[in-house]
Design a protein around this nucleic acid. Structure first.
Length: 569
RNA sequence: CGGGACGUAGCUCAGCAUGGUAGAGCACAGCGUUCGGGACGCUGGGGCCGCUGGUUCAAGUCCAGUCGUCCCGACCA
């Protein structure tokens, strides 16, 4: 490809709309262009990068006997009603009507359509297992799209779905996908980690998220260096710490804490540490109003609360509900004398002489022991943080940031039962298929790669996904010998199957160097009069400061060494 | 959804408090000088000042509405 003929609108200045590095660089390097909030056009360079990721994804999917299909992105309401998600999915599901007033939606995911497809076509256990996948544009009407293609409304996703006859088969499919994902992100040249995750609205048994490690990531990964336990923050468990307290209660007293609502305010006022307080959070759930107790310096993890105690939904109560349940205003809730089910975090087991709310304006209770009130039980309900005890091995947990690029779920029979996707087993009996679903944010993977691989000059993309592998850069296009050598090297590299761009523009060298660095081409060959005086040209990798000067006769061979080394990694 | 800000050239922004011929730098075109890390000079093209309405002799500037974009928050006890 000739640089001069390619549509590469690079920018010298930072567009003000971009906050994070990947977004800024993708705009500056001419990878993407915004059309509307959360909606982007992929320009030639960005698309090349995207296609390279897609290609790796296809190869690894095909390697696990998954078969590619392409499903519609406009889908009828009926299927979503059948799965129960027409009502469950909130405003993120973009709905509209056609000319016949039929209700439709723009697909945020494809479980419904795939389940419909497979239930109509697959009859027998002999046709299973089956794994189908697609690479499709999805639409989720995000509350707040941001960070460019990292969190956009329209985005490109690879989604795969597995159908098995039983749990064991489903597990095998799951492991195959786990394996494929590990290969995919590895081949993309990314540093990543697979972590245990919550299944959320998609539902199902268990799941893993594949997180690209980057300080700018939106997600927090909790992990244990000692045993390898890793989970996202929503899901991360915390082991118990501290010996149980055996103090008996009855000696608490009520104190006035005028206007002190926040934990820090109360703690400072009473001259105790925040950890000596117990917060009583009132939740509205499908089983009525409940209270949750955690230490003052901790937060309740609503996802764990929901899963641990098998609620269908949990939501923090509003002020009216709090007053109704506790008799006191927001900020002064406490467990003593409260007539709703109370669930305590494990921390409370070892706490003694703590402070709670008095269920009355400006009143707290001090010197409380845990037998001063009754709880339904003690559970792991708090948000994990660095320094907590590992739930598996008792080691220390650490926190890292990451970007979620892949997510795999074991769905079980949730959709197959709801939508009657059954097969005939060898005994001639109908059984629901056991499903799994597996997603990769392809566009987001590109952004994550940039987030993880850049410097002050621009992107430094991994070889496997860079828009070009090599740039041939003649310093002076009007110098005949330079152009001749550049041209023949360019053609030779193309003939060797190397993805090469020739910067044939009549620009000053500085401009060409800057552009080359900005768009992150891993390998650059500079051909200039200065080197040619000694019969040499310069080879420089994106990540090295200084070029290596090699005889012009050897340049093809030397470049191929680099290319082959990069390809075999 | 709540709060904040911003919409002026392709990009970054000035002009607006006090209404009176639409500006700079970068980018773009031509010419010349340059040429191994975003050159310089001269010349030139480019604007429904987001949109609609209002006030006024006169609106980029004042007022109202509207649309768009960005940021922050949406776990507080």
């Amino acid at each position: 490809m000739l640089f001069s003929r390619m549509f590469i609108p690079t920018m010298k200045e930072d567009p003000k709309e971009a906050e994070v590095v990947s977004h800024r660089l993708m705009l500056r390097a001419g990878f993407i262009k915004k059309l509307s909030s959360g909606i982007y056009t992929w320009l030639p360079l960005g698309l090349r990068c995207l296609r390279k990721v897609e290609r790796i994804v296809r190869e690894e999917m095909d390697g696990k006997a998954a078969q590619e299909i392409l499903m519609p992105s406009v889908q009828p309401k009926e299927l979503w009603v059948e799965s129960g998600r027409w009502d469950l999915y909130g405003k993120e599901l973009l709905r509209f009507r056609d000319r016949n007033d039929r209700e439709l939606c723009l697909a945020p995911t494809h479980e419904e359509v795939i389940t419909d497809l497979v239930r109509k076509e697959v009859r027998s256990y002999r046709e299973l297992p089956l794994i189908l996948y697609q690479i499709q544009t999805k639409f989720r009407d995000e509350i707040r799209p941001r960070f460019g293609v990292m969190r956009s409304r329209e985005f490109i996703m690879k989604d795969a779905y597995s159908f098995d006859t039983d749990e064991q088969g489903a597990e095998k499919s799951y492991m195959a996908m786990f394996d494929a994902y590990t290969n995919i992100f590895g081949r993309c040249g990314l540093r990543f980690r697979a972590v245990e995750a919550d299944t959320g609205e998609i539902g199902g048994k268990f799941s893993h998220e594949f997180m690209v490690l980057a300080d700018t990531g939106e997600d927090v990964i909790i992990s244990c260096e000692e045993c390898g336990y890793a989970a996202n923050l929503e899901r991360a468990e915390v082991g118990r710490a501290g010996a149980p307290s055996d103090k008996t209660g009855g000696s608490y007293s009520r104190v006035r804490t005028p206007g002190k609502k926040r934990v820090e305010e109360v703690a400072a006022f009473l001259n105790v540490a925040p950890h000596d307080l117990v917060k009583t959070l009132i939740f509205t759930t499908d089983r009525g109003t409940v209270g949750v107790l955690v230490a003052g310096d901790r937060e309740v993890n609503p996802v764990k609360l929901k899963n641990m105690l098998a609620f269908k939904f949990v939501e923090l109560a509003d002020e009216a509900a709090i007053e109704q349940a506790t008799g006191g205003p927001l900020g002064f809730s406490g467990p003593i004398g409260l007539d709703i089910p109370l669930y305590a975090d494990n921390d409370l087991l070892s706490m003694s002489a703590f402070v709670v709310g008095g269920n009355e304006r400006d009143v707290h209770v001090v010197g409380v022991e845990r037998d001063d009130f009754k709880v339904e039980g003690h559970y792991d309900l708090k948000v994990a943080r660095a320094g907590d005890v590992c739930p598996r091995c008792g080691g220390r947990l650490t926190a890292t940031r990451g970007i979620e690029v892949g997510h795999i779920f074991k769905l079980g029979t949730k959709y197959s039962e709801a939508m009657n996707a059954v097969f005939l087993d060898p005994e001639g009996k109908d059984r629901p298929m056991v499903m799994g679903c597996y997603g990769i944010g392809v566009g987001r993977t590109v952004a994550a790669a940039i987030e993880q691989n850049h410097d002050e000059n621009g992107m430094a993309l991994p070889f496997a996904i860079a828009p070009f592998e090599v740039e041939v850069l003649p310093v002076n296009t009007s110098h005949a010998e330079s152009m001749e050598i550049a041209g023949s090297l360019y053609r030779a590299l193309l003939a060797h199957g190397v993805d090469t761009i020739l910067d044939d523009r009549d620009e000053r060298p500085g401009v060409k160097f800057k552009d080359c660095d900005l768009i992150g081409i891993p390998l650059r060959v500079t051909i200039g009069e200065r080197g040619l005086k000694e019969g040499k040209v310069d080879i420089k990798t994106r990540n090295d400061k200084e070029p290596v000067r090699v005889p012009k006769e050897e340049v093809l061979e030397r470049v191929m060494e680099h290319v082959n080394a990069a390809k075999s990694r």
